[in-house]
Amino acid sequence: MSFRSSASFRGSLKDLFTPAQIQHLMRVEFDRAQRYGYPLVLLLVGVDRLSQLQDLYGSELRDQVEGALVSVLRTSTRESDSLGCLLDDSIALLVPHTPAEGSAAMAKRILAGMRAISFECDGRPTRITVSIGGAHNNRKGELSFETLLEVAGEGLRVARASGGNRYVQSDLYEFFEQRRAREKAAAAPAPAPAAVASPPAALPGLDPVMAVLGDKIRELFGLGELDREILVRIEREVVASALREMNEQLERTTREHRSEAQERIELLERRIAKLSESLGMTEAELQRVMAAKSIDPGVASIYKTVQGLSATAVQAELKKTLMSKIFEANVEM
């Protein structure tokens, strides 16, 4: 299957819900599902390395890819499913009356549908893939629509970070719910000072693992009545664990940065190669046109400036006089 649609991205999304519309619809559908107890799945779909593709091959390819993705999503979903674009280059798909297992099958269809499409980049066939993050409402305990959205977003992020072309269903409902609760509490008016000072709350945006670690530390120090020796041991273990975690986090971040930098270098090298090739082709074309039109650019002289007689020339003085006489004769003429 080859896709050469000229439909633009904006054109493709004309039929989709806008970010505000889809969020409103999803929220209504989510509330309804919670009230009547039917399963619901949210999928966030994004094209892998879309911005790099645009840098390399231009916005025309981006429009084609997004047009193709919308087509694949339409053929893989039901009429009753809601499809709309979100702000961060991803398309949201809300599928009501579908269990978590069903969402995986649907995601596989979407992945396979995109893989089957061949795009033409500079005359060469190119495969372009998507990543999908999923979330569902089939769980016990508190669950808000925002958490559902964040869990699906986390799944999409992990799927992209793992190389793309995959579906990831994250299980961080509790974490996001807790974080939301903490943020809510932080936003509420400050309570009266407590008798015993509690450790500071985890900072919003902190890595999930570090946040969980922070919670554990708070729990441990909140026990109050422990033996001092046990407390010292726990403190040591916690500090060691925190240091280990920080080192790992540092290594992970460094690796990611290196990887990103390497990708960027490769992208720039590809772009330079492409520009060099284009330049060569343009030069060849110019030569061809000049040849066809019998335009000769000429042959460059070996002299960049006027030369004149060299002081070391044979019979320099005589030649100088001769030059002067030739000049005078021409002036007279």
């Binding site: 000429g298 042959v299 002289s301 070996i302 002299y303 006027v306």
Partner: peptide, 24 residues
């Protein structure tokens, strides 16, 4: 401003020749 091309021309009755500073 790219350079100076010198031409030596022998304008003859039968044959006209040129020698140029670009080697032609």
């Amino acid at each position: 401003d790219a350079g100076v091309l010198y031409l030596g021309i022998d304008l003859g009755t039968s044959r006209t020749s040129v020698s140029a500073s670009n080697g032609v």
